[in-house]
Amino acid sequence: MKKPISFAPLWWGLFAGGGMAAAMLVPIHIALTGLAVPLGWLEEPLWLYQHWLVKVYLAGLISLSLFHCAHRIYHPLFHFAHRVYFSLPSFALRLIGRPVAILVYGGAMVGAASAIWIMTR
């Protein structure tokens, strides 16, 4: 018998990869571009962004981290709305859940596509 295809492992894989990328590298980028550069402690090395290796690195980091964020935003929504969530019949849950999933994961996909587009121009 043919089992229904589940895309859950794909999203969980992106969640795990993005989680590690975000954990290892996002804090330093926030500290540098969000604080040290605007406060005048350091300068943004603009020419470095032209290097292909930096472009690949940033496209990968931003895309993976966005998928991680999408997963972490989507799932707790049901914890927040716990009461509403469990009082609804399953067809209603699917009706609500699907557009929310499309919005959240779609947002991550648009972000990832934008990152790749910006880096490959």
Partner: peptide
């Protein structure tokens, strides 16, 4: 779980 919202906003701003 909320940390992801701040990280996502930062990533969009950085992009």
């Amino acid at each position: 779980e909320l940390t992801s919202v701040f990280i996502a906003v930062f990533l969009v701003v950085y992009l």
